[in-house]
């Protein structure tokens, strides 16, 4: 398999994952903005989570709902806007066309055509929910074709690495931006405002139902942190993503008969997770924990690029 192809698969699935997470984040953002007096504050938080607040401000200045929506969905200057990301996913799919089944390729291509259409004009408040649903549905469609038709070989595992590196990164960023509501001091307050904040976090990773199944109606900061950081059953948690990374590297190690630096780094990150409890994390500082995590994940990613010769 070409190094370039491994890289193309990895990025294709990073971008697909990002488009979906952005859509979730925006849906939760719109929802909470509607319940607050300083509605636009929530859009600032959304921009922070996608790490695009600075580039947004340079282009638009003040944060308003309509501009934020435009920026996050359609703006081609935003390298993380859904349109840019879907286009990058498709370009990578074209690059690795020979590694994909026809069904996966057609699904990605159709997603690109559909979303290009849907995002060609300004999306207003009214259309936003449908558009965000469409984005998530398209992502589910690609994932379905992928799960249903792809051989479980190295190709599959490079794609999965991309998915879980991106997911780990995205969930961690969300937790970081919202970390102030998850702090032990904040949890003592327990005002209704904070309940809305907590709910937003869960909504942003489509986890309200899953949380209720686990903890019932008892919405507490500590539980949310435990759920999204350490619960290995929750498919968007950090522990889940890291666990999957270790599995995928394990497959590649068997497939090629060599263990590489990226495997060791992912393995180390994983053991850290097995050793730590939520109170320890919260006591030592959630923000610090997340920052260290983001650094480690980024390092695993760039080591993978080197280990598997993505670039010349």
């Amino acid at each position: 398999m070409l190094g370039k192809t491994a890289g193309g698969l990895y990025w294709m699935f990073r971008y697909l994952e990002r488009s979906e997470n952005t859509a979730r984040l925006m849906a939760a953002g719109q929802r909470i903005a509607l319940t607050r007096s300083h509605a636009d504050d929530e859009w600032i938080s959304v921009l922070e989570t996608t790490a695009t607040l600075d580039s947004y401000s340079a282009r638009y200045g003040e944060v308003t709902r309509d501009n934020a929506i435009q920026w996050m969905l359609c703006d081609r200057d935003n390298t993380s806007s859904v349109m840019t990301v879907i286009e990058s996913a498709r370009n990578n799919a074209r690059l690795v066309r020979t590694a994909l089944t026809r069904e996966v390729w057609e699904s990605v291509n159709e997603s690109w055509m559909t979303l290009k259409d849907a995002l060609s004009q300004k999306v207003g408040e009214r259309e936003l929910p449908q558009v965000l649903t469409l984005i998530r549905n398209r992502s589910a469609h690609v994932r379905g074709a992928f799960a249903g038709t792809m051989l479980r070989n190295d190709i599959y595992n490079f794609a999965r690495l991309g998915t879980f590196i991106e997911r780990a990164d995205n969930t961690a960023r969300l937790l970081d931006v919202k970390s102030y509501v998850l702090l032990p001091s904040a949890s003592a307050v327990g005002s209704s405002l904070d309940n809305v904040q907590w709910e937003t976090i869960l909504r942003s990773v489509s986890a309200e139902g899953a949380y209720r199944m686990t903890y019932g109606q008892d919405v507490r900061a500590r539980n949310i942190a435990q759920f999204l950081i350490l619960d290995r059953r929750m498919p968007r948690s950090l522990a889940f993503s890291v666990g999957k990374l270790v599995d995928n590297y394990g497959y590649l190690a068997d497939c090629y008969g060599t263990r590489l630096d990226s495997h060791a780094k992912a393995g180390a990150l994983h053991s850290d997770f097995l050793a730590v409890g939520i109170d320890e994390i919260l006591d030592a500082g959630l923000h610090e924990f997340i920052q260290a995590f983001l650094r480690d994940v980024a390092e695993v990613g760039s080591q993978t690029e080197v280990d598997y010769r993505f670039y010349a």
């Binding site: 398999m1 070409l2 190094g3 370039k4 192809t5 491994a6 066309r97 020979t98 190295d154 090629y256 598997y308 010769r309 010349a312």
Partner: peptide, 27 residues
């Protein structure tokens, strides 16, 4: 390339190694 079941390469995937033209694979 897909229908033949062979790799699709670009110039930057290739280099001359030991008198042969070789492609950069994951290995």
């Amino acid at each position: 390339a897909d229908k033949m079941g062979v790799e699709l390469v670009e110039g930057h995937d290739l280099r001359v190694v030991g008198g042969r033209v070789a492609m950069r694979t994951t290995e």
